[in-house]
């Protein structure tokens, strides 16, 4: 089975993330970037499926600026077979809808129009909307099964288990399909030395919008279906009252809650 895994290059959550003053988009220059942690689980699961089947290929696809090549590199080091990097200045500022358009056309091109299985993480760690998997599935005309904490590929079907708010569900979809996975599904491998060396020889396709038949007016900040009016840094929360427990910590806690009318 051939699998396309869509990944995102994101600013490190441990760093001081911010917005660019000029156009209120996420500042990707001022901070270190990396392969979104949640996408590593999708890469790992795709590798396991192909390894278990003994045949097939894992293609890693990303849409992003030049530095996003690092996200592909990491996935190739983990063991993916090849990469596709869609990079075009016109894409800067694209919203989820435009991103899903670029991903959809890239998936079609990478699979000659017949994807078997498309995989993603449950959401990015920067935007965290978690809507691109469903948007991509809609554009590709595929069923989506999301938030998988277990995944089984059968004859023409994919079955997942997920923990919903009120129930644990088993969900089955016919292939081709799109699956998003959570951080519960596996333990992503660290690239081995061999993997790191092998990654250098793996092919990475570079595509621009023109290669995908997308007009630059369909993407980017000006084509976005939503507009950010303002971005405000929250003032740090005022330092609260902190007490050391001297045998009365519990009572003082209850007293605070009563004072705030929680009791």
């Amino acid at each position: 089975m051939n699998i396309v895994v869509c990944v995102k290059y994101v600013p490190d959550a441990q760093s001081d993330r911010s917005f660019r003053d000029s156009d209120r988009t996420v500042d990707r220059d001022g901070v270190d970037g990396l392969l979104s942690e949640l996408d590593e689980y999708a890469v790992e699961e795709a590798l396991k499926i192909v390894e278990a089947a003994g045949e097939g290929e894992v293609t890693v696809l990303t849409v992003g600026p030049a530095a996003a090549a690092n996200a592909i590199k990491k996935a190739l080091q983990m063991g993916a077979d090849k990469g596709v990097h869609v990079e075009d200045e016109a894409i800067h500022g694209s919203d989820a809808a435009a991103t899903s358009l670029v991903l959809a056309e890239a998936v079609r091109k990478a699979t000659s129009g017949t994807p078997e299985l498309v995989m993603t993480g449950m959401s990015s760690t920067d935007g965290v909307m978690g809507v691109v998997p469903a948007m991509l599935a809609e554009r590709l005309g595929l069923p989506q099964v999301t938030y998988a904490s277990e995944l089984t590929v059968g004859e023409g079907t994919v079955t997942i288990r997920r923990d919903g708010d009120t129930a644990s569900e088993t969900i089955e979809a016919s292939l081709p399909a799109l699956v998003s996975v959570t951080d519960q599904i596996n333990e992503p491998r660290y690239p081995s030395f061999k993997g790191i060396m092998a990654a250098k020889k793996k092919p990475v396709e570079q595509w621009a919008l023109a290669d995908l038949g997308i007009d630059s007016s369909q993407v980017g900040l000006r084509a976005a279906w939503t507009s950010v009016v303002s971005v405000t840094k929250r003032p740090p929360r005022a330092q609260g009252q902190i007490v050391a427990d001297e045998g009365d910590g519990g009572s003082r806690l209850a007293e605070f809650l009563a004072g705030q009318k929680f009791i």
């Binding site: 609260g240 009252q241 902190i242 007490v243 050391a244 910590g249 519990g250 806690l253 007293e255």
Partner: peptide
């Protein structure tokens, strides 16, 4: 976490919480 709090107790949860629980029940 203490950078965020409105109220914090530095102490052992296994003594602070049971005391707070009893106190809340009494107040209720």
């Amino acid at each position: 976490i203490f950078e965020l709090v409105d109220f914090g107790v530095v102490g052992d949860l296994f003594s602070v919480l049971p005391q707070a629980t009893e106190d809340v029940k009494k107040r209720k």
